[in-house]
Design a protein around this nucleic acid. Structure first.
Lengths: 233, 233, 233, 233
DNA sequence: CATGAATGAGTCTTCATTCAT
DNA sequence: CATGAATGAAGACTCATTCAT
């Protein structure tokens, strides 16, 4: 056992500290980039500025990241990851009931957006239209995010004993939800400063989504006679 | 008399052709920029490329436009204008009924997006996160677009003999609609090539919106009573 | 007689008007350039600005002048010519007496400089260090100006029954005088605004010159015993 | 102890070399700019040329200097500084006697000008009329230079037991002296190649100044009386 | 591993000049 | 002769990236 411990620590002890420091440095740089990209914009931020804010040299930035682009991509992925984790938790809490929409809206708009405006700026603004590579990664992040929501939406439908109009519906719903959150965040929080009304926005956007989802539902026990697209009315 | 008429035209004829040529040149450049920005991206496109494609000199580009940024802004504004005009017409055609959502979805996704992928790319990708000035103008364009939809939504509600849950609702609905179209266009058309399913997307997104809007409606003749947030069943 | 007049005018009448108009246009442009060069500087002034101020087209500027450089050169030569004419007159008025220095100082500083600050700016600032060609022409203008003063100085010496220490002296005196006027004009009028003290400056600079000249004089009737350089004291 | 000493040097040794190299680079670039500005003129010299001559990259030029303008300004200031230092030493050597004028003339014309024609060209030609900023800095340099001479002139007057006609006189004398040196240097050395006659020019210009200064002197112990303008004769 | 000076390709932008109308 | 749109060569400057110390 000691041996094992020794093995785990002996030489590793140093390297672990190294690792920790490395991660720290890495994160410091990432945080600096996040703040600056969010505040001044991706293009208007120079590597040197990031290095300065992180209190390292430009060379160090390039030791931890391949290039400026990677910094943006990492940031974007991290934010995407946060969002997914965070939504996943909300869905869990509400046990994939229809109430999830409300909870998530409150959590996202009333919590995440207000707390992390730079993240919003990077995710919905700075990471857009910068280069082929960034766009490719952005797509991947959004596909995963959308997939998560789609899965949750399906689970909810099952819980409701309903199914969707078409096979496409759950994904489309997910896409719509992402779009709604994106635009609300940009419109009301980045462009105008309506943080005061955030609760109301959360409330009503949840209602909107709920109505939308409902309208693509179809009762589960079909005496067949489905009727294709006979949706509302 | 004919003489006078002749005189009236004589000089103007030349200057009118001049004017036409001037507008043509302007438009040629704008078209070239649109294609390249949409295809290669704003940053990867050099002024010289635009000039080449438009078959003019770089100097001419700067004769008609202050700088590269202005080119992007003009393009964005033009597209924004097209969209508003085009939505306005659809709303008119359907006399601001609930059916408008369906018509517009078909028109936007099944017509506009498929016909003008570069416009979509510029409006929803290239004009994002480029500079403070571009962002400011982008905001203005989106505010107008949103306002238009908000007004239409209000008209529709009046036609339905209903009113909205809160004063914010119509605007929020407009914001959601814009977000939905934006993300659908990006997700399905720019990122994946799902142009084949465009009609289905139009159909279902319209249903989604309809459901969403309905859920923020409240019958007009309220025996007063509750209302508060008693939205969905 | 009428015939002669006719001959002088008949066809020429038109061409004379042409000539007059041409000269007018030419002068208008020159005046515009003078104002702008003097105010904004040679490099910061564009041909279009000059054309605008002169109310002609850029093309017209190039009809009357080979290029921008020629505009500056013409202006410089004109000012040089003015100065020479004007100094010549002053020397005449004072009959090439020692008093000339005083008169000229008053005239130059108290009159010319105050009335034509743009001319001073062009002659002593904007026409300096712009290009090989301008510098060459500038040299010529200054050589002529210096020559004039040299000649005058010699005449004065003759009137005084004296001659100069060396053959170089009169030219060197001329060079000194030009330098003095140049720097006083720049220092006190372009850099600081001491136009109020102009009279005193004229007065004392004249004294300075007078003293300087006197110190390079040597009584005319030398019983030989020249004494080399026994100048002052 | 030696160890401590070693420690004291160890790091500094390296960083001192760094510092030296940095200054060297800076100076190499400055020297290259000086030569080219002096020879080809400020506008005809491109940054790349300077970089080439200094054997660095264009980027390095911009690492040490904000822009081309700053290069010119630094050069001008340096030359101004040299001149002041150099004049100061001459005045010291001659103990602020009247003889200073002669010594300085010899030193400036016979030494400085012949040795550093590029400096003369930059100081009196290339730094003139280039831009508002350069002109502003030029003014400052000349004001300091003039001030120095004014102070020296005052000291000399005190040594002579004399005072000046007016309060303005010493400054005006300084301005005149600067003007004389400037024009002589330009006229005889930049425009014509009269370097052979430089000694004679120094000699006579000194005489001229001496005479000029004397003419603005007034004996110190005045039984009061008039004085006014009773200067020459 | 850290540093930061050095690099240099790449881009926008300017503006004097021309020439078809 | 006048016009002013069109030209395009020329240049300053940036900044992500590298690498010797």
């Amino acid at each position: 056992m000691t041996k094992v411990n020794n093995n785990d620590d002996a030489l590793p002890r140093r390297s672990m500290r190294r690792l920790r420091e490395k991660e720290n440095r890495c994160n410091t740089i990432l945080k600096a980039a996040e703040e600056l990209f969010g505040r001044k914009g991706y293009h208007s931020t120079g590597i040197e500025e990031i290095a300065d804010l992180a209190e390292v040299s430009t060379g160090s930035v390039y030791f931890y990241f391949k290039n400026k682009e990677e910094l943006l991509i990492k940031l974007m992925q991290e934010i995407g990851h946060d969002l997914r984790k965070f939504m996943g938790e909300e869905f869990q809490k509400t046990e994939f009931s229809l109430d999830s929409f409300r909870t998530i809206s409150y959590a996202f708009l009333g919590d995440f957006c207000l707390r992390h405006p730079e993240k919003i700026a990077i995710f919905f603004r700075e990471s857009v239209g910068q280069s082929v590579e960034v766009e490719e990664q952005r797509k991947q992040v959004f596909v995963k995010l959308t997939q998560d929501i789609k899965d949750a939406v399906i689970k909810i439908s099952e819980g409701q004993g309903k199914h969707f109009v078409t096979k496409l519906s759950p994904e489309l719903i997910a896409v719509c939800i992402v779009g709604i959150y994106e635009r609300i965040a940009c419109y009301y929080l980045l462009w105008q400063d309506r943080s005061a009304d955030v609760m109301q926005m959360a409330q009503e956007s949840a209602s909107f989504m709920l109505g939308g989802v409902n309208n693509l539902f179809v009762p589960d026990a079909p005496i067949s006679g489905k009727r294709g697209k006979g949706i509302n009315k």
